[in-house]
Simulated scan of single mutants.
Amino acid sequence: MTTRQKTDTLPQGTRIGRTALRASDLGELTAFYRDVVGLSVQQQSESTAVLGVDETPLLVLERDADTPERQRSGAGLYHNAFRVPSRKALGDALTRIRDRWQLSGASDHLVSEALYLRDPEGNGVEIYRDFPREEWPITDEGTVHISTEPLDLESVEAAAAGDDRAPPGTDVGHVHLEVTSLDAFEEFYVDTLGFEVQTTVPAAYFVSAGGYHHHIGANTWNQRTSPVGGRGLSWFEVVLPDTETFEAIRNRLTDAQVAVSERDAGFVVEGPDGIDVRFRAES
């Protein structure tokens, strides 16, 4: 697949904000993200829980006991990726996972060190920390090179300090989607929105703004063929660094005849595979 050339790219400071999951058992899922991932419960009702770090919300859980399980053919979430600010914090996360849950994978990606697991309803979770940006390998084309190498888990755990909560500075570094078409993904996220392709591997794209290694990943590894639905991903949020960029994206989407709906001091659009993407400007 040949990537397209972009001129109207998203600027430095563009980032992922909140992500939202449809939950069958709100209490069980809330406890997992609190006790294993280490987020704090900021708001909770019978229908919704909001978790984050300090006063920053990162994850919204929306209870729907009647929602069916995600279909095996359905597009949606591959994983939410929570980025911690240090190797010590990654070691603390590994300790919590080993004490309270089950690790399903771990990798050195040359740009980051990552731990992988699944929540009680099968949603993928990544907890990772970045290497210093000046150490990231750069290709001859000027993009970031991402690889998958074994991670030395014992040295990660040795860095732990015993903290039971994710520290200040933790955020959602990226979201990785399972899609039905990489062409449709690229047309929307790269050609229309202005993300830049950083790395491609067989059946997967990794795109970003401002030279980050990736803000959004997409793959067709499991050959999903139908739109998002059932439990799992409800929506995710792209935060733009200023109102000028926010308005430019709104105009770009309108020009592309994408329906824009106002929502929560921003707007929401339906992207490929029926995945809702929310946009707001940095406050």
Rank of each mutant, 00 (worst) to 15 (best):
A31I: 03
A31P: 07
A31G: 13
F32M: 03
F32R: 02
F32E: 03
F32P: 09
F32Y: 10
Y33T: 02
R34F: 05
R34C: 12
R34P: 03
R34V: 06
V36R: 13
V36I: 15
V36L: 10
V36W: 03
V37M: 11
V37S: 08
V37K: 03
V37R: 03
G38D: 08
G38K: 04
G38S: 12
L39D: 06
L39N: 01
L39M: 10
S40H: 11
S40A: 14
S40L: 00
V41A: 03
V41S: 01
V41H: 02
Q42Y: 00
Q42G: 09
Q43S: 11
Q43D: 13
Q43M: 10
Q43N: 12
Q43T: 14
Q43L: 12
Q44L: 07
Q44M: 07
S45K: 02
S45H: 07
S45A: 05
S45G: 13
S45F: 01
E46A: 11
S47I: 00
S47F: 00
S47N: 12
T48N: 02
T48R: 06
T48A: 03
T48D: 00
T48S: 03
T48C: 02
A49H: 01
A49N: 04
V50W: 00
L51P: 12
G52Y: 12
V53H: 06
V53W: 08
V53G: 01
D54H: 08
D54Y: 00
D54P: 12
D54K: 09
E55G: 03
E55K: 13
E55Y: 10
E55M: 09
T56K: 11
T56Q: 15
T56Y: 06
T56H: 11
T56W: 04
T56I: 12
T56R: 14
T56F: 10
P57S: 15
P57M: 14
P57Y: 11
L59T: 07
V60W: 02
V60Y: 05
V60Q: 08
E62R: 12
R63C: 08
R63T: 01
D64H: 00
D64L: 03
D64C: 02
D64A: 06
D64T: 02
A65L: 04
D66K: 09
D66T: 11
T67L: 09
T67N: 06
P68N: 14
P68M: 13
